[in-house]
């Protein structure tokens, strides 16, 4: 077949030119060129461009060089720190819960036989449903005045007005839970918690698909022999499935952290403007959007974006160091 006729000679070609002292470099170059070209032009170039313009006091593409002023301004602006805190609450609130839930659902979906096609499709629906459509129904459910959630809580006798505002509530959940003992600014606001719940619901579909694909790719024999040796579900999961799945789990962890730090659509669609009541849900990306776009300060927005990227890079490196080491590759 044609494939063979092309690949065969190519293989021997790379065998001849490589291997001596360049290692796999010629072959690697051949394999990497398409991806590196696209990513270099449309990914790396804008990245450096944005770092570059963050040194300018830029509006509509015009402005003077200002050194690190944008950075010092960001670091001394309370709104910047507030948005960082919101971002952290969001990441800490979503990732562990969504990963654990998705793992449980994926394991269950992986084992069942009858109805699995339908059930797998159903669990993927939240992810394919557009965020706008999904957020619309959530807004209806959480509506303080006519929402199903408040109606249901009322029906079972829980008529606590403290909690009734949901997405419109800028006060902290800890403040609400303790009846005001903890200051309102400590802990995530109720509005932010609603966004977190939404994100868990929405992103599980994504995680389940990737976990299912990962589970399909690992050998079943090990799990089976462990089970024959009398290990229960928990032991098999802990000792066999999780280690074998660890490249996938590690991937999900890194990707979810990046996604959580960059979350925008859920915030925007749920709260109507991303900022939420009195800025309660303004995360870094919403803040960048507002500075860069609504307030037209491109240099400042790019500086905040760079700081966000630095935070993500630091986080990713830390995960690589402390979690990546535990990843089991055959």
């Amino acid at each position: 077949m044609i494939f063979e006729r092309i690949l065969g000679p190519l293989d021997s070609l790379f065998d001849r030119i490589g291997r001596r002292k360049t290692g796999d470099a010629p072959l690697a170059a051949f394999l990497l060129v398409p991806a590196v070209l696209v990513l270099g032009v449309f990914g790396i170039y804008p990245l450096f461009f944005s770092i570059y313009i963050s040194l300018f006091d830029l509006r509509m593409g015009r402005g003077a060089f200002c050194g690190l002023e944008n950075y010092t301004e960001a670091l001394t602006t309370p709104n910047f720190w507030h948005s960082l805190v919101v971002t952290l609450y969001f990441a800490l609130g979503t990732i562990p819960v969504a990963m654990a839930l998705s793992f449980l659902v994926a394991s269950a979906l992986f084992r069942i036989v009858r109805g699995r096609s339908i059930l797998r499709t159903v669990y993927f629906l939240p992810y394919v449903t557009s965020v706008v459509a999904a957020a619309t129904i959530w807004r209806v459910l959480l509506n303080p005045h006519y929402g199903l959630v408040n109606a249901a809580l009322g029906a079972v006798g829980f008529e606590e007005t403290r909690w009734s505002q949901w997405l419109l509530e800028p006060k902290g959940v800890l403040y609400l839970a303790t009846g005001g003992l903890i200051p309102e600014s400590v802990g995530p606001s109720l509005a932010l918690c609603c966004v977190i719940l939404f994100e868990i619901w929405h992103s599980s579909g994504f995680m389940i698909v990737i976990l299912l694909a990962g589970m399909t790719a690992i050998p079943r024999e090990l799990e089976e022999s462990a089970r024959i040796d009398g290990a229960n579900w928990f032991q098999v999961t802990r000792r066999v499935t999780v280690p074998l799945l660890s490249p996938t789990i590690f991937f999900l962890l890194i990707i979810s952290a990046i996604k959580a730090f960059q979350a925008f659509n859920s915030f925007y669609a749920l709260t109507g403007d991303g900022r939420g009541p009195v800025n309660a849900t303004q995360n870094m990306t919403v803040y960048i959007y507002a500075s860069f776009f609504l307030n037209g300060r491109e240099g400042y927005g790019a500086a905040v974006a760079t700081l966000l990227s630095v935070a993500i890079v630091a986080l990713t490196l830390a995960q690589w160091r402390f979690v990546g080491r535990k990843v089991y590759y055959e």
Partner: peptide
């Protein structure tokens, strides 16, 4: 210039008063 940003602040103030913050 800057009024767009001020609009956001006005809306924050309105929300803060309405939610009795």
């Amino acid at each position: 210039a800057g009024w767009q940003e001020v609009r956001g602040l006005i809306e924050d103030a309105e929300t803060a008063v309405l939610s009795q913050l």
